[in-house]
């Protein structure tokens, strides 16, 4: 398991290559990349600043990955989340899940993102033409995380 919080950008190809380490037991890799958009709720976004709670963030992300490994038959998972100032087109977050088969890898990847969105202590502040504003949490993110509370088939 690997969890990183960093200011620097990440190279998806290099991260996946390093994470799979030529393990021939891996038959599937599912990944998700979150990006900064130039529009949020109809307002142009020039840039955003991401802050977090050092210590709790790493603990929360590690807990989410451990939970995913309990729930699905996956081999491992990697989470990288950026902080600091980001601009439209920039990468924010990377989740990579390795497994023997795609079903568990897809599901665990989605689960990790849904839980990260609602439980990991990150906050976004956007710079817009109207000034700065804190991004509001979305009810749809809570609903996305809640659906994993129902019994899951392994």
């Amino acid at each position: 398991m690997a969890v990183r919080v960093q200011r620097e950008d990440f190279d998806i190809g290099a991260e996946i290559a390093a994470f799979r380490r030529a393990d021939p037991g891996i038959g599937a890799i599912a990944s998700f990349i979150g990006l900064v958009r130039d529009l949020n709720d109809g307002v142009a976004v020039a840039s955003m600043t991401l802050e977090h709670y050092p210590g709790m963030t790493e603990k929360a992300l590690s807990g989410i990955v451990a939970d995913a490994k309990q729930r699905w038959d996956i081999i491992d998972a990697l989470v990288i989340h950026r902080i600091g100032e980001l601009r439209p087109l920039d990468q924010i977050v990377l989740v990579v899940v390795t497994g023997a088969h795609r079903g568990a890898a897809f599901a665990a990847c989605e689960f990790i993102m849904d839980y990260l969105k609602t439980q990991a202590p990150f906050w976004k502040k956007e710079q817009t033409p109207q000034g700065t504003r804190w991004v509001e949490a979305r009810a749809s993110d809570d609903q996305a995380a809640d659906r994993w509370s129902e019994p899951q088939a392994k």
Binding site: L50, Y53, H81, K117, A120, P121, W123, K124, W134, V135
Partner: peptide, 9 residues
Amino acid sequence: AFFPPVTGG
């Protein structure tokens, strides 16, 4: 710690 609902990802 006290904070608003989280908005990462």
